[in-house]
Simulated assay, not measured.
Amino acid sequence: MTITAEERRARILEVVRELGTVRVIDLADRIGTAAVTVRRDVAALAEAGLLRRSHGAVSLPQDASPTVREGRDRVIGMLVPTVGPYFDEIIDGARVAATAAGARLVLGISTYESADDRAQVDQLLDAGLDGLLLTPNWRPANGAVNTSWIRDLPVPAALVERRAPADSAAAELDSVGSDHRHGVLLALRHLRALGHESVGLAARLDSWTAGEVRAGYEEGVRLLGLEPQPVIDINRPGIDTDGLAARIAEAVARGVRAFLVHNDQEAIQLTPLLRARGLRAPDDLALISYDDVFASLASPPLTAVSPPRRAVGAGAVELMLRRIDSGPELPVHHVQLLPDLKVRTSCGGTGTGTGQAD
Rank of each mutant, 00 (worst) to 15 (best):
A158Y: 01
S198N: 06
E212M: 12
L173S: 00
V199E: 01
L223S: 14
W208Q: 14
A210C: 12
A164P: 02
Q123T: 13
L224C: 01
S114P: 02
L186P: 00
G177S: 09
R204S: 14
L201F: 06
A169E: 15
V213P: 00
A164R: 03
V160K: 05
S198D: 05
L223G: 08
D174M: 07
V184R: 01
L132I: 06
L188Q: 01
A169I: 09
N137A: 14
S168N: 05
A202K: 01
G211Y: 05
H190T: 07
R204M: 14
W149I: 08
T147L: 08
P136E: 09
Q123V: 15
A164H: 03
V176A: 09
V145T: 12
L201Q: 03
S198G: 11
L173P: 00
L186N: 04
E227L: 12
L125G: 00
E172K: 15
G128F: 08
E197T: 13
V176S: 03
V199M: 01
D126T: 12
L132E: 03
L173I: 06
P156A: 08
P156S: 07
A210M: 07
L129K: 00
N137F: 08
H196Y: 10
Y217C: 03
S175E: 09
A171P: 05
P140W: 09
R151P: 00
I150C: 08
G143I: 06
P154K: 07
R181Q: 14
G195Q: 04
H196R: 02
L134V: 10
D206P: 07
A158F: 01
A170E: 05
H190E: 11
S178A: 14
S114E: 13
E218A: 13
A115Q: 12
S178D: 07
P165E: 07
V184D: 02
Q229V: 12
W138M: 09
G195T: 05
N146T: 15
L132D: 01
V213T: 06
A187R: 02
D122H: 12
D174P: 01
L173W: 02
A171T: 04
E113N: 13
Y217R: 05
N137Q: 12
L133R: 01
D179R: 06
L159H: 03
A157F: 09
P156T: 03
G200L: 07
L226M: 02
G183R: 02
G128E: 07
R189Y: 08
D116N: 12
R118T: 11
V231Q: 03
V160Q: 03
E161T: 11
T209K: 08
N146P: 11
S175H: 05
H190R: 13
A119N: 10
E172T: 14
Q120C: 15
S148A: 15
S175V: 08
A210N: 07
I150P: 00
E113T: 13
T147P: 04
G200H: 00
R181E: 15
T209V: 15
